[in-house]
Design a protein around this nucleic acid. Structure first.
Lengths: 223, 223
DNA sequence: TGTACATCAGTGAACGCGCGTTCACTGATGTAC
DNA sequence: TGTACATCAGTGAACGCGCGTTCACTGATGTAC
């Protein structure tokens, strides 16, 4: 069942994933190359196809792995904080940022511009892709209690539906809050990761992030 | 001085830019190809090099053109609104969003993940790249008056320096506000453009955007 | 107005490169009796 | 424990593709006298 052959297979599967990640970091997802991975693996290019169906399938594996890794990092950051829900929300945001700075190209793969010619298959990608926002949603619900804002009528149905999709009974206002924070978070982290404002804009980027985060949180929890 | 030859040259220069844009839309910046443009131009590939120094230089031209086009669109949106500074700020944000939705791949070129192997030359790119945020900064200063928030000590110097770079005498708090709104704007628009939340999350995406925008603006102008 | 020369736009062939994927194959590792 | 057979990992050659860029060239358009 777990003979030496199966074991070796697992190891090489893992190596391919690691080399894929390294490739992302060096050349970006668009230039991810099966042949290059084969080279670094010391194999002939066709041999990689024993482990991977196609380049696209490899990309999907990398996407799923990145989502999972990210969600785990955020989860750990939340669990490591013993404060109230707002404090843990802030911890989640900082954890998200930290992971993104440590894994810039994987972040870009998940939240950056789409890879030309590649479409992630929703059935493998959707669930891992929503794990982080689900964490935020839970914390926001806990932090805000019943004091969620009223929402424009045009959005009510949509927001209720989204609440249902996440399985919680959440008020539309809470969902709006969560989406707002989520949007801000991706934007802020994305800009920092891709050097949007120039690399040396702030001497203490973490402090700048925290200042903005604090202000965003005032939108989400009752003052 | 402007003989038929020079005229034709201008026309072809323009065509190359247009075809480049079309390419961006079809295959993304990473796959932008001089040869493909030559084909569509009905020329042999080497002929394009009479008009363009290299693929990278063409990319730079496209970046500059996109920045300029975007800034013009935002400018127009602001000028078309006769309301107060807050109303014009909202108009600017909506104008920004509109342009991005109309030019998704150009938006990705400017604010998405970097194109592998390409680095925009700052001396051609910096100035056009800051035009939009300069517009926002002006409106925010006008809207907020002197009522800007206090900022964490760690950020004071940086924010003052940024204010200087934009030539206005702005309080650090105002600059913090502007950067916050800017970050949010790119994040929100970027997610909508790349379909970050799934394409059919909101039946009325503009209303969702506006709801979030309204809340962001409360952070920027005194209530 | 006409001619001689310089500039310029576009051609076609070639360079060297890397890519994804298929296919028939060999030799080693595992499994069933 | 030993043998016969099936599975599997990796090879090497090949397919057809597209790319950026250089170079010597031809023929047309412009310019100076």
């Amino acid at each position: 069942m777990t003979g030496p052959r199966a074991l070796r297979r697992q190891q090489i599967d893992q190596q391919i994933l690691d080399l894929g990640r390294a490739q992302l970091a060096e050349v970006g997802a668009a230039a991810l190359s099966v042949r290059a991975i084969a080279r670094e693996l010391g194999m002939v290019s066709s041999a990689v196809y024993r482990y991977v169906d196609s380049r696209d399938e490899l990309l999907t594996r990398l996407v799923v792995a990145a989502y999972t890794d990210l969600a785990d990092a955020v989860r750990r950051a939340v669990d490591a904080d013993s404060g109230d829900a707002v404090a843990r929300l802030a911890a989640a945001a900082h954890g998200f940022r930290r992971w993104a700075l440590d894994h810039p190209t994987e972040f870009a793969l998940l939240y950056g511009s789409p890879v030309p010619g590649y479409h992630a298959p929703p059935e493998r990608t959707n669930e891992p892709g929503t794990r982080v926002i689900a964490i935020l949603l839970g914390l926001i619900a806990e932090a805000a209690g019943d004091a969620a804002p009223t929402v424009p009528a045009a959005l009510n149905d949509d927001l209720s539906r989204i609440a249902d999709e996440f399985g919680h009974t959440l008020s539309p206002g809470t969902v709006l809050n969560a989406l707002g924070l989520w949007t801000w978070l991706i934007g802020a982290v994305g800009q920092e990761v891709t050097g949007g404002l120039g690399t040396d804009t702030f001497t203490d980027p973490a402090a700048a992030f925290d200042a903005q985060l604090t202000r965003q949180l005032t939108l989400v929890v009752p003052a």
